[in-house]
């Protein structure tokens, strides 16, 4: 009948499990796929990432040279990071701010 009493008493005296979000931000976890970044000076604009992207989030222009990411389309799967021949795409652990 009173199986949760112990739990309730403990919950009264310990600090909250949740965070007060905008004040306290969860630290980024190493190795987490948060957002895609490019070291643009190493990019050779081959277009491999554009062809492979499952969500068509990346557009690579040859003339003039450009690389654009639509962050609202990106599904942070990391497939482009895998296929990049120059390894200039990196996945950073921080999620981008809303």
């Amino acid at each position: 009948m009173f199986t949760l009493i112990g739990n309730i008493v403990r919950c009264l005296f310990r600090k909250p499990v949740t965070r007060l979000y905008p004040v306290e931000v969860k630290p980024a976890v190493a190795g987490c796929r948060g957002q895609l970044h490019i070291r643009i000076e190493e990019c050779i604009f081959c277009g491999a990432c554009q062809r492979r992207c499952p969500a068509n989030a990346i557009t690579v222009g040859k003339q003039p040279k450009s690389w654009t990411l639509d962050p609202y389309r990106c599904i942070v799967c990391g497939y482009c990071v895998e296929v990049c021949p120059k390894k200039c795409l990196v996945m950073r652990p921080e999620h981008f701010k809303p």
Partner: peptide
């Protein structure tokens, strides 16, 4: 009970984030 169970679930989501890089969409 709902909140207690979801608090426990959070541990699993966090370990998935640490091992796979995302909480749900592991890829």
């Amino acid at each position: 009970l709902f909140m207690q169970l979801w608090r426990v679930r959070e541990h699993i989501l966090e370990i998935m984030e640490k091992t796979a890089g995302a909480r749900i969409m592991l890829s």
